[in-house]
Write a protein that binds this DNA or RNA. Structure first.
Lengths: 253, 253
DNA sequence: CGCAATATTGAGCGAGTTCAAGGTGCGTGG
DNA sequence: CCACGCACCTTGAACTCGCTCAATATTGCG
């Protein structure tokens, strides 16, 4: 509760009580440590409720939580928010947006908390001459990260139809990324795999495909799926999940 | 469908049709390219159903999917399996186990597929003299990755009680990692945040805490939670989710 | 063709949601 | 110090979506 110093030197790293749990652990090269510290900005604790960043901000930094706690929030366009993660001291914040030029989530402090800020540019520079490899690798890693979170969000508040629609759209997107058809997709996985992935019974997958077919959003022939109305699928996937496919079709035509 | 060559030289990278979508994209340093290729092993397509690796294998490599498709499976000790991800060409496979010395999941091919294998050791060496920074950063990133997947699995087939128990245990583990009490935890987030995180209504969180309290697994005083019976909590969290807290208590008591 | 694996369809049930009404804790200001 | 107000939390009752169980249909492959 006592007031904190308003400015903290970057040399604080050497005295930080979290040092052994922080990024530059077991570093021996003094020059490297000095350069790393130049990339890091410590600052006084921020009040509860303040935002480290919000969706769409230019991704300029990563954060390292020194004290307190935080939550990450992803909100669909409809305003339905979902808490994807909680952060505690020594957690790194912001890596899930590694790939993107803007943050994919908002992070809000749950209590008065102190963070270290690590400029992304400085960190990249720090990684030396092989930035190209790193950049490619980071992009891949971040891609996997996004997929994992996408799967997580998909299973959240949405109805079974919405989750199925969302999975179909993700597969479509990934097929498009590698130059395949966006209209006709061939599912390589069984209905059981889909069910397991979407956390539902295989029967529910069947019924879901059936409803989407009845509403003319897709055509189903075994593992061959034809996307008849991607716009309506998106509407359904992003909807609040309380509406059946047939309710969406009228709006998205 | 035509048969593939049984042996593929590593020089294939330069001719690979996926080159612009692969890791060493926009590389200009010829020496770097050569060294990167030395870390990569191409091989003939593998049959449907074969495993790239299984849970617990020593993590020796990452994989790059050139053709076909795959699924990642995480199974609890009870044998309940869950498909966490699907992979398509150009996806990287194995990064979710970045932090761990062993793989955290199994990956099975959904059809006849070709992969490139990238030795982890070679990749690390490739990243040059700053391996220490990278290692720390990778560990942090992988940690976030694991948290995200943990959250995903938590929301899967488990009952609301199991999900709550699992969240409490994760927070306990993270508190322990930073040297705090493992018995008494203070939740910094609201019941609403927990509900959003666990994909349930706030009311369900309340009732869940109530049940855990009634069964003497925890004590609840607002955001102050005392873990009375961690063993039973674990049993509950890892159970198949069809059993209420009171059913578990008798076994783990 | 015939078997086995996979997929669809139907009926009934139950956990979690929604809606609605109290209850509790805490910081603020009188 | 207490009373107020607000945000958070708990509890209750009815409903509903997805699950389970079971039967049937279809597909894939030897």
């Amino acid at each position: 509760m006592s007031s904190q110093p308003t400015s903290i030197s970057t040399e604080q790293c050497e005295a930080c009580h979290l040092r052994p749990l922080c990024l530059p652990d077991h570093l021996r090269d003094a020059d490297l440590i000095r350069r790393l510290q130049r990339a890091v900005t410590s600052s006084p604790p921020r009040p509860r409720g303040s935002l480290l960043y919000t969706v769409g901000d230019r991704r300029h930094s990563f954060f390292f939580l020194r004290s307190g706690s935080a939550k990450a929030i992803v909100s669909d366009e409809q305003g339905t928010a979902c808490v994807t993660s909680f952060f505690f001291p020594t957690d790194i914040i912001g890596v899930s947006s590694l790939e993107s030029p803007v943050y994919q989530e908002s992070v809000e402090l749950l209590e008065r908390s102190a963070v270290c800020e690590i400029k992304a540019s400085a960190l990249e520079e720090l990684c030396g001459g092989h930035g190209e490899v790193l950049h490619g690798l980071f992009a891949k890693i971040a891609g996997s990260f996004e997929l994992e979170r996408g799967a997580r969000l998909r299973n959240n508040h949405a109805s079974s139809d919405a989750r199925i629609a969302d999975l179909l759209l993700e597969i479509r997107r990934r097929m498009q990324a590698i130059g395949r058809s966006t209209e006709q997709i061939v599912l390589p996985m069984s209905r059981y795999d889909i069910a397991s992935h979407l956390c539902m019974a295989p029967e529910t997958v069947s019924r879901g495909f059936g409803r989407l077919k009845d509403d003319h959003l897709i055509e189903v022939r075994g593992k061959n799926i034809r996307l008849r109305n991607p716009a309506a699928l998106m509407k359904l996937a992003q909807g609040d999940g309380n509406r059946r496919a047939s309710q969406v079709v009228r709006e998205a035509g």
